[in-house]
Amino acid sequence: MLCDRCNLNPATVHLKTILNGIVEEKHLCQKCAKETGQLQMLNVTNPFSSFFETLLGSMEYQPTLLRSKCGVCNLTFDQFRRTGQLGCPSCYREFNNELQPILRRIQGDVTHRGKIPVRQGGNLSLKRQIEKLRDELKDLVKREEYEKAAKVRDEIKELEEKAGGNQNG
């Protein structure tokens, strides 16, 4: 949702006033809320969304990049920069290069380490298992427990084959 006042920034301040039985709703961005004195009325604001807004506003982008579109949903990068929202799931791949530094700033990380859905998770579960076993393997080799290490190595091989097979199938 865009700000009612400037129509440029995402609305993050939602106000509702009831006057003579008429409910009036206002959706403003942080900047407009501040300018119209509405922000003082609120005891609580979210420093995180204003940080994100400020970050997007402060980034300098080439005009050609701003005009570039997501091939799936037609969202321009400029639209993303102004609204803070992406247009469709594919936007994450289409604007991957530009999103990486933004995600690093706002999320502190760029890699998902949480839940993996069963059907749409692809090989991610296997990959995580393999990663874990590789760490284990390094550890065992360091401790010169070669017999155990060989077992883990076999396990990794097996999982890798499974992952590769899944990819082809």
Partner: peptide
């Protein structure tokens, strides 16, 4: 509830970024 829904609907999930959301402030989990 999420598990139940995932059985029936194809959810937007990316191996690197996790669950994909409109705001990048919600992506991942």
């Amino acid at each position: 509830i999420d598990d139940q829904i995932e059985k029936v609907l194809d959810l937007a999930f990316d191996e690197k970024y996790g669950y994909l959301t409109a705001w990048p402030t919600n992506v991942g989990t």
